[in-house]
């Protein structure tokens, strides 16, 4: 396949960026989106031109490194996939593809398609943990947890921290991201002792990092590559009210 790629190029956080257009030939339909970009970079490097910087690592949809708008949609329009698993089968020969970094105030551009997502880590540092010191745990079966609740906690815990939910939200809200962690711990008896402190601390940090408010449009859920559900946000709100 032949493609026209319009890609955001930006030297660093301080400089202005702009779209640059590249023609790319030899794209195979079984390539993944990041393999297609790697092919572009290989071609550019051989021509002595500067490659496009982008984050990618595991290539199996689990590390959360990759992430970019593909034709305006975080990770592209195919449901439940990260950029690294998005197959080029979903694109047509001759198509123009527009590729941009996440656009959100808390995610400043580092270079080209790479953004700084450390604001997400800061929220986790504020309270995304259960305070059990190594060595202090009782036998794993000492506390029984219903399979249903445990499975629900797992469904929330699969968040990969890619930031697509923030990028999809018109308010750049991180509510789905925060609610996934809050839900995981709220559903498990192990997480209950610190539930109040946790939800307040994480919400306070989220606000401090200048993420926007949630207006319940559901764009985050629609674009989440791990298909984390909106009802986690309802649970987050409930946990937050309960904490006062």
């Amino acid at each position: 396949m032949k493609l026209k790629l319009k890609i955001w190029k930006q030297k660093n956080a301080k400089s202005d960026g702009a779209f640059e257009t590249y023609d790319l030939d030899g794209v195979a339909p079984e390539m993944s989106f990041v393999e297609m970009l790697a092919l572009l970079n290989q071609t550019l490097a051989q021509q002595g031109r500067e490659p496009v910087a982008f984050d990618h690592d595991c290539h199996e949809g689990i590390c959360g490194s990759c992430g970019m708008y593909i034709n305006g949609y975080p990770h592209g329009l195919v449901k439940g996939l990260t950029t690294c698993l998005l197959s080029m089968r979903h694109f047509k020969d001759g198509e123009t593809i527009v590729i941009e970094p996440w656009r959100a105030k808390p995610f400043p551009v580092v270079k080209d398609l790479i953004v700084d997502r450390s604001a997400l880590d800061k929220i986790q540092v504020a309270g995304g943990f259960i305070s059990v010191t190594t060595g202090a745990a009782a036998d794993a079966n000492a506390v029984l947890v219903s399979k249903k609740k445990s499975d629900l906690a797992f469904d929330s815990a699969v968040c990969i921290g890619c930031g697509a939910c923030v990028a999809a939200c018109k308010n750049a809200s991180a509510m789905l991201f925060v609610s996934a962690k809050i839900s995981q711990y709220a559903l498990l008896p192990q997480g209950r002792p610190e539930a109040k402190e946790r939800v307040r601390a994480m919400i306070a940090e989220m606000d401090k990092q200048a993420f926007g408010s949630c207006s319940n449009t559901g764009a985050c859920e629609a674009q989440c590559p791990k298909q984390i559900k909106l009802f986690n946000i309802a649970r987050l709100n409930r946990e937050y009210y309960k904490s006062y």
Binding site: I130, V132, A138, Q184, Y185, Q190, G191
Partner: peptide, 8 residues
């Protein structure tokens, strides 16, 4: 330990 720190 993992169970105590909330690994599902």
């Amino acid at each position: 330990h993992f169970t105590a720190i909330g690994v599902p």
